[in-house]
Design a protein around this nucleic acid. Structure first.
Lengths: 207, 207
DNA sequence: CTTCTGGTAGACTGATCGGTCTACCGGGCA
DNA sequence: TGCCCGGTAGACCGATCAGTCTACCAGAAG
C-alpha cells in the first residue's frame, strides 16, 4: 500500500478514466439534459467500461450532481464571472458585460442554453436533490450579480439582482426559442434597470 | 350509417372517452412535461383503455401536439388573454396586467410553470415537430403582446414585445426556482419599459 | 333476435432504462 | 517470476417505455 490517496494516480493527477467520464457527462448533459441521456451513452462517449463509471459514482443521480458542480466551475465561474471581470472594471459595466458575453454565446451554432434551467424543469418535485442543487446553482449566479450590484452602490442589491437575473434567464429562453438577438434586447433592459437605480453605465452610449 | 360525423357522438358532443384522454394528458403533461409521463399514466388517469387512446391518436407525439394546442386554448387564450382584457381597458394597462395575473399564478400551491418552455427544453433538435410547435406557441404569445404594444402606440412594437416576453419568461423561471415574488419584480421592469417607450401606465403609482 | 359500434381489460413485443456481475487483461512492483 | 490493481468488454437483470393485439362486453338499430 503506497502512500498515495485512494483514487489518486501515481502522476498526482486524476485517473484519465474518471476525467473522461466527467467530460463526457458534461458534454451530453449540458446539451440534452440528464433525463434524455442514458448512462450507456455517457459510457460510450467516455470510451470507458460501465463498471468504471459505477466505480466512481454510485448512481446516475450522483453523476448528475457532479455534472452540475462542474457546470458551475466551467460555466458560472470560468466563463461568466471571469468573462465579465475581464471585459470591464467598473461594477456597473461588469453587470452590462453579462449581456455582451451572452450575445456571443447566443450566436454560437452549438448554443445549448442554461443547463441549470434545463435540469430544473426535469424535476417537478421541489424536494428532489437534483432540483435543489439546480436552485442552489441559480442562487449562486444571483449572488454574483448581487455582489456586483452592491459594489455599484445600487439601492436594493437583492431586489436588483433578482430583476437582473429575470432578464438573464428570460433572454436565455428567448434565444433558445429562436431570437438570437435576445442578448441585445436584454442589454437595453439592463441599462434601463441601472438608470432607474441611479447608476450610469459606460455602455449606455453604445446602444 | 346515420348522418352523423365520424367520431361524433349521438348527443352532438365529443365522445366522453376522448375528452377524458385530453383532460388527463393536459393535467399530466402540464405539470411533468411530455417525456416524464408515459402513455400508461395518461391512460390510467383518463380511466380509459390503451387501445382507445390509440384510436384517437396514432402516436404519443400526436397526443403531445394536441396537448400543446389545448394548452394554448386554455392557458394562452382563456386564461392570459381574456384575463388581461378583463382586468384593464387601456392597452398599456393590459400589458402591465399580465404581471398581476402572473402574481396570482406564481402564488398558487400547484404552480406548474410554462408548459411551452418545459417542452421546448425537452427537445434539443430544432427540427423536431414538437419543438417547432412550442416555438410557434411562444410566438403566438408574443404576437398578442405586440398587438397590445401597437395599440399602445409603442415606437418599436416588435422589439418591445420581444423585450416584454423576455421579462415574462424570466419571471416564470425565477418563480419556479423559488422566487414567488418574481411577478412583482417583473412588473417593475415592465413599467420601466413602458416609460422608456414614452407610455405612461396607470399602474405606475401602485407600485 | 342479431348485428354493429365504441369501448374495456390487459397480455404481449421489442427496445431501452439504471444498475450488477463475471471474466479477462496489462503494467508496475516485490 | 508472480501477484495486485485499475481497467475493459459485455452479458445479464428487472423495470418501464411506446405501441399492438386478442377477447370480451353493453347498448342501440334493424
Amino acid at each position: 500500500m503506497a502512500a498515495v490517496h485512494p483514487g489518486q494516480h501515481k502522476s498526482f493527477s486524476l485517473p484519465p478514466a474518471r476525467e473522461r467520464i466527467d467530460r463526457a457527462a458534461y458534454e451530453l448533459f449540458s446539451r440534452h439534459g440528464v433525463r434524455a441521456v442514458g448512462v450507456d451513452a455517457v459510457v460510450a462517449r467516455a470510451g470507458v467500461a460501465k463498471k468504471t463509471l459505477y466505480l466512481y459514482y454510485p448512481s446516475k443521480e450522483k453523476l448528475a450532481l457532479a455534472f452540475l458542480q462542474r457546470r458551475e466551475a466551467l460555466w458560472t465561474q470560468a466563463w461568466l464571472q471571469e468573462g465579465v471581470n475581464r471585459r470591464a472594471r467598473r461594477p456597473a459595466d461588469r453587470l452590462v458585460a453579462v449581456f455582451d458575453l451572452f450575445d456571443s454565446w447566443f450566436h454560437r451554432s452549438d448554443y445549448e442554453a442554461c443547463a441549470f434551467i434545463r435540469v430544473l424543469f426535469e424535476h417537478d418535485d421541489p424536494a428532489h436533490p437534483i432540483r435543489k442543487s439546480t436552485e442552489d446553482h441559480i442562487r449562486t449566479i444571483r449572488d454574483f450579480v448581487r455582489q456586483l450590484a452592491e459594489e455599484a452602490r445600487v439601492r436594493d442589491p437583492d431586489g436588483f439582482a433578482r430583476q437582473w437575473q429575470i432578464v438573464m434567464m428570460g433572454s436565455i429562453i428567448a434565444a433558445y426559442a429562436g431570437d438570437r438577438d435576445a442578448a441585445r434586447r436584454a442589454k437595453k433592459l439592463g441599462v434601463l434597470l441601472l438608470a432607474d437605480a441611479g447608476i450610469r453605465s459606460r455602455s449606455r452610449a453604445r446602444i
